[in-house]
Amino acid sequence: MSLLLQILLAFATLSLLAIGGANAVLPEMHRLLVEVHGWMDDATFSQLFALAQAAPGPNILAASVMGWHIAGPAGMAAATLGMLAPAAVLAWVMGGLTERLAGARWLKPAQFGLVPVAVGLIAASGVIMAGAAGTGWLSWAIIAASTLFVWRTGFSPLWVLAGGGVLGLLLL
């Protein structure tokens, strides 16, 4: 199977499972890209994800950056297409039903019931990212400070990313 097809399929399996956005599929992305396929190492994975977080636009574009790293522009196209197309088609099909869905009795339980799954997956993403990024006492200090900042304050997380970059430049 060609590399591009493998990339397309890897991300397409993520697409329909991405309840709760990019952060929730991160553990599976890590499992597939780093452990199953061996396309990149831990450090590269966490840096590419961080780049996508720091850039504007939907965070799901982390998939595109990783596709580029694996196989250049064609890899980027394959990863983006795989990540977005299946979900987009489903959203389009269901979109016609929006008005009926909005009043449906099962919608509220569905929203409430899937949120804890998403939050659990996001927490797992954080733990996996921390394991990949925590290379010394300084990076662990940055991780702890950034966790507290995002948890306890309402400021934009971009400040944290910028601060992390500056500290890394000065001290690492």
Binding site: A43, A133, I142, S146
Partner: peptide, 18 residues
């Protein structure tokens, strides 16, 4: 070095969000 710092901050950001 810069990217390692940003990656550490992003990890904390995801944890804090959770």
């Amino acid at each position: 070095a810069v990217l390692t710092g940003i990656a550490a901050a992003a990890a904390g950001m995801v944890l804090g969000t959770a």
